[in-house]
Design a protein around this nucleic acid. Structure first.
Lengths: 123, 123
DNA sequence: CTAAAACCTGACATCAATGTGAGAGGCAAG
DNA sequence: CTTGCCTCTCACATTGATGTCAGGTTTTAG
């Protein structure tokens, strides 16, 4: 498929796909005329990239991780492994952080609700 | 306390504090000479702001939420309440997302480890 | 009083992902 | 073959939080 279709299927912009390629996250074969062609697998790959992006990984970090997905027996997978562990830690910490923030929001909302109820009771 | 001390206590840069004020997230009294002065409460306030920032809220959104912390019985707390609910949802979704991403990473790591073990067994 | 340290405003720089627009060329249907 | 849509590259713009620098003022320690 061409880039427009991949963009539609993966739910990202064409611009982003070209950017991913520029960053070495995605490769494509080119038609005689120079247009990018993709396979079905690339849809999943882009989805995975998106997932990592929304997890807050930079394209730089993703670049280091993806080889592990591509050639899962690489010699240099040691570095990738280390990287993954590190990112997993970061993720866990961040998740904890978000949970605490959500709790804080809940406290705020409960307080606000109490105020509202009190006002209502008076009225 | 002056801005430098607040920055140190809250663990943020002086620059950021001035930015927070510019965005209406933080206020200060001024000395005769024009320097900002803060109270102990501001340390917690900045910490809370930081918490919301790392939760991915924009300063724009935080601005809408903070009045609810300041004057907890405001008439316009309805809007803030709605906003909080919305952000809470967004947070929950994001947390789910991160959990799934972490799981995906785990799968990748297990696969990588299996490969490594296999290699080891052969060697 | 003086010098050093901290502060002030204002402006420009940065980073990362993405948007946007121009000008040119590829590709498929009629 | 032509028309219209899709794609190409290149380059500049944007956003948000923060860094940084410059030139000047305030505060504090000695």
């Amino acid at each position: 498929m061409r880039i427009g279709e991949l963009a539609a299927r993966a739910g990202v912009s064409v611009r982003s796909l070209r950017y991913y390629e520029e960053q070495g996250l995605l490769t494509s074969t080119r038609s005689a005329g120079g247009q990018r062609h993709y396979t079905q697998d690339d849809v999943e790959r882009v989805a995975f990239i998106q997932r990592l992006y929304t997890a807050g990984l930079s394209s730089r970090t993703i670049t280091e991780l993806l080889p592990c997905l591509d050639s899962p027996s690489d010699e240099n997978s040691d570095a990738a492994m280390e990287r993954m562990l590190k990112e997993r830690d970061r993720l866990s910490t961040h998740i904890e952080d978000l949970l605490r923030t959500r709790d804080a929001l809940d406290v705020l909302m409960i307080a606000a609700q109490a105020h509202r109820d009190a006002r209502q009771a008076v009225a």
